[in-house]
């Protein structure tokens, strides 16, 4: 009797915990949508801040939207250029060696580095190179942030490629490079796209690493060496003003950011079975 009671109590606790966890997600999304939706309008999405915007004047957050897309886009491209070789090397070339264990551990540890530290490090490097806060600086800091996420995701995808497939390629006389580029990469295409979206989603939402490195501006991104605005910082700065009209815009900006992130994660789910023209099952 007693152990049945215990069983029931703990099952109840577990279901309650799971409901609290899911409920908190719903709570967060509900607050952002309910507060953000009334403040969202077309002008927010299509205009840059005009004079007096931060006092409640006309304008929108197009600067932050495009800035964030540029920052996360640039960082994702750079991170992919670095992570694909890393993942291919670890999975196709080096196999199980001391070095690959070390590299994996080091990337996992990099994944845990707080983003404010990336920001501070990025800024230190920029001071050293005499670069001001700019798109380039922000992209570099975000690349560091995305690198471990993307390379671990890619490696996981690549490790799923059946050994037979690789061996067939080798048996046909293909070198490891040819096997990697023509067989492994094609087989993994959906997974690679998912990894790209995942990294992009993390990059676009991060505020602390672009705080010092990318700066903030009211104009659209124009050059690698000029500061750019970003959505997370738009939320942060607009919320910090004392004017309710501007704070409303922070809610709307947060909603835009959340929608982008949700679309990206929806995209990840949808990709699962698509882009499989070259995938052998």
């Amino acid at each position: 009797m007693d152990k049945r009671k215990e069983e029931l109590i703990f099952q109840g606790l577990m279901i309650a915990s799971a409901l609290i966890v899911i409920g908190s997600l719903v709570f967060v999304l509900a607050v952002v949508v309910l507060k953000g939706l009334p403040a969202l309008n077309l002008a927010m999405l299509t205009q840059t801040p005009k004079g007096g915007y931060y006092l409640g004047g006309e304008g929108g957050i197009l600067n932050a939207i495009t800035g964030s897309l540029c920052l996360a886009g640039g960082a994702t491209v750079l991170a992919l250029l670095l992570s694909l070789p890393i993942a291919l090397f670890l999975q196709v070339y080096s196999g199980k060696s001391r070095f690959s264990e070390f590299a994996r551990l080091s990337l996992d540890v990099l994944w845990g580095v707080p983003s404010i530290v990336y920001g501070a490090f990025g800024f230190t490097i920029m001071v050293f190179l005499r670069v001001r806060a700019s798109l380039l600086g922000g992209v570099m800091a975000l690349t560091l942030l995305e690198l471990p996420i993307m390379s671990r995701a890619l490696e996981e995808v690549i490790s799923m490629v059946p050994l037979e497939l690789k061996e067939s390629a080798y048996a046909l006389g293909a070198t490891r490079l040819e096997t990697a580029m023509r067989v492994v990469v094609r087989q993994c295409l959906p997974g690679i796209l998912t990894a790209i979206l995942l990294a992009f989603g993390r990059g676009i939402g991060d505020a602390a690493s672009v705080l010092f490195t990318a700066g903030y501006t009211d104009s659209l991104p124009s050059s690698l060496f000029r500061p750019v605005a970003s959505l997370p910082l738009a939320v942060f700065f607009q919320l910090a003003t004392p004017f309710p009209e501007v704070q409303q815009r922070a809610y709307a900006s947060a909603l835009v950011l959340t929608i982008i992130v949700l679309l990206i994660s929806l995209g990840c789910r949808l990709i699962g079975g698509r882009f499989t023209a070259h995938v052998i099952r």
């Binding site: 967060v28 989603g201 993390r202 939402g205 947060a254 950011l257 992130v261 789910r269």
Partner: peptide
């Protein structure tokens, strides 16, 4: 599980705003 992954993807400023 996808919902929990979603929780992981929400940007920190959005949590802050919440």
């Amino acid at each position: 599980k996808p919902l929990i992954d979603l929780l992981a993807g929400i940007p920190s400023v959005v949590y802050g705003l919440w």
